[in-house]
Design a protein around this nucleic acid. Structure first.
Lengths: 191, 191
DNA sequence: GTCTATATTGAGATAGAC
DNA sequence: GTCTATCTCAATATAGAC
């Protein structure tokens, strides 16, 4: 009698593979190998490869949003925590599983496509709500642009291993909730 | 006797497929079908699927940079033209073939990986040179950040069909070469 | 240069024993 | 819940005729 493999482990390893190799580049064989199962045994835990996408993104969304500071009590802390959580993963892993899936899933896998839409919409709405409490102008647009800038910066990590664009994107994002508007220094890129 | 299929056609169709489905999601069968050949016949024109990547990106880089206004004579015109060329493709096609490949190629296809690096490095360096002529501060960082913002904005086109983040990224980019610094309007997002 | 035919490998998924 | 065995299909790629 062996310990059954926790579903959570499968989802976490699937996330690693989706992030690195994308939806098409990920095989159930590789995933099975990572969790120590035969490929066929995966199908007793999940219905299909496509179904893994929503599991992966639901877990990621939960990890990103759970236990955030209450925006109504301290929206700056909520914003800072959220931005730093997103940025930390992008920097450590070098890329975003959501972006890879956003580009990688097609109308051939509609459930996966919908899961990706829900993931980014939820993230953007969470950001928007925080900015609304802070009375930031055009909160929805700022939220979308901020997320786009963080995601876009991973281009340079993926191609050149350069995380400085991401760090600058984080600084611009944090400045939105900076209570003391600083005098811009001459050497500072993209104010 | 049939007209041979021009290599250029094959590369252009491969670009469509790579952009939409990524490297792994693109099959030589689909490509052959698009150009009206049997899959096997492709191999008389190109060495492998991997070799298509550098062809695709070389063509794209050429189209993006050829015939730009001379930065030394008019760097603002050069910048505007370059940004608008990049943005136009992203908006029409909804996504960037370079970004899809940047995320999609792995160390299993080192030549493709190198081609992606060269592509983005060349694009960034062209942008940097223009900004240098314009005496913009930190031109290399600004170039990298600008490209990252344009690429990142495609996230919202891909997931929600919303191109407004891209349009705002374009406006921010163009403002860098704006000769008349305007008084910021209250309703303007991400100044 | 394109075709038919084929080799080889790996993909996602199912059936049934333990 | 996991296994062995198997199905079916599609992937990249090569050989050789025309």
């Amino acid at each position: 009698m062996r310990e059954p493999v926790p579903l959570r482990n499968i989802v976490i390893e699937a996330r690693e593979l989706f992030r690195e190799y994308g939806y098409e580049g990920t095989s159930m064989r590789d995933l099975a190998g990572r969790v120590g199962l035969r490929p066929q045994s995966l199908y007793t835990r999940i219905a299909s490869k496509e179904a893994l996408v929503s599991e992966v993104l639901a877990l990621t969304l939960k990890e990103t949003l759970e236990g955030l500071p209450d925006p109504v009590r301290n929206w700056r802390a909520a914003w800072r925590t959220l931005i730093e959580r997103v940025a930390e993963t992008l920097e450590i892993r070098g890329r975003c599983v959501g972006l890879h899936l956003a580009y990688g899933v097609t109308s051939a896998t509609p459930d996966a496509q919908k899961a990706v839409r829900v993931f980014f919409k939820s993230l953007r709405e969470a950001m928007t709500r925080i900015l609304q409490v802070g009375k930031i102008t055009s909160p929805a647009a700022i939220a979308a642009d901020t997320l786009a800038q963080l995601e876009g910066a991973t281009l340079w990590i993926a191609t050149e291993g350069d995380n400085r664009p991401l760090k600058r994107a984080v600084r611009r994002a944090l400045k939105l909730a900076d209570p003391v508007p600083r005098r811009p220094k001459k050497s500072e890129p993209l104010p």
